[in-house]
Amino acid sequence: MAEGRQRIIHKYLRTTKLFPSIWCPGCGIGIFLGAFLRAIDKSGYTKDEIVLVSGIGCTGRIPTYVDFNTLHTTHGRALIFATGIKLVKPELKVIVVMGDGDAVAIGGNHFIHAARRNVEITCIVINNSIYGMTGGQLAPTTPLGLETTTSPHGNLEPSFDICRLAEAAGSVFVARSAVYHVGHMERLVGKALKKKGFSLLEIISQCPVHYGRRAGMGSAVEMMKWQMENAITEEKARKLSEEELRDKIRIGVLVDKETPTYQERLDTLQESLKEKAGAL
């Protein structure tokens, strides 16, 4: 089984340069990448059909390693480049991967407007609750009170719930998983890829180097154990009180609705303009 899985991943990894990756031992991004590539393989898309776009940070390095049309943009801006690509070539499958700081701090404005606009982009946010690459600074997803390199006396800011933010902004598909639940994660990537319109998948991940040490969460193994113990499916969560749900990670599909995509609206507009021109 393990051998079979390895073979699937190796179909998609670039082999010409850059291995090993820049990710630290124990990082969750590699586990995500494996699940992501297996989901891609099942989805039936060819490598030429996929455009993988990222911003800056540890997650931003994913496209470098995989054999698709890949674009590593500026910090927080992956979604806007993806919007331009998708509008010009609607036949391509455009996927964006971002970290939490990339997506909802510096890229927060683009994030809500991409969700609102409903251009068909599969947007995956890997949330490790901290800035990893730059050295463990406070993120908008860092829990209250946590001591980071830029909150050495404790974080004073409440954190964002990325899924609720996406839902409020109009995302037609919102889901959450965690790198510990690797099979679950793979299935949700597959679902997000199938969705017409802007889909948001949040992946709870771990940064043992910059978060584990500071928060007293320990090693990567302990952090993943925490994910295992605290993840609760959306179906179960709906039956529990707010008090019981505190500190739990709700995983599963949170929103799945049908709204016309930007492309569908644009196609209708262009058709009607053609008819008008024809009538003259």
């Binding site: 674009l71 500026t74 806007i80 480049f81 331009g84 010009v88 070539k89």
Partner: peptide, 20 residues
């Protein structure tokens, strides 16, 4: 397309150019 700001505008333009 009207974007949310000028950063987004040029980003979308670059994306469109990469798509041809």
């Amino acid at each position: 397309i009207q974007m949310e700001d000028e950063i987004a505008s040029l980003g979308a333009v670059i994306g469109a150019s990469l798509a041809g």
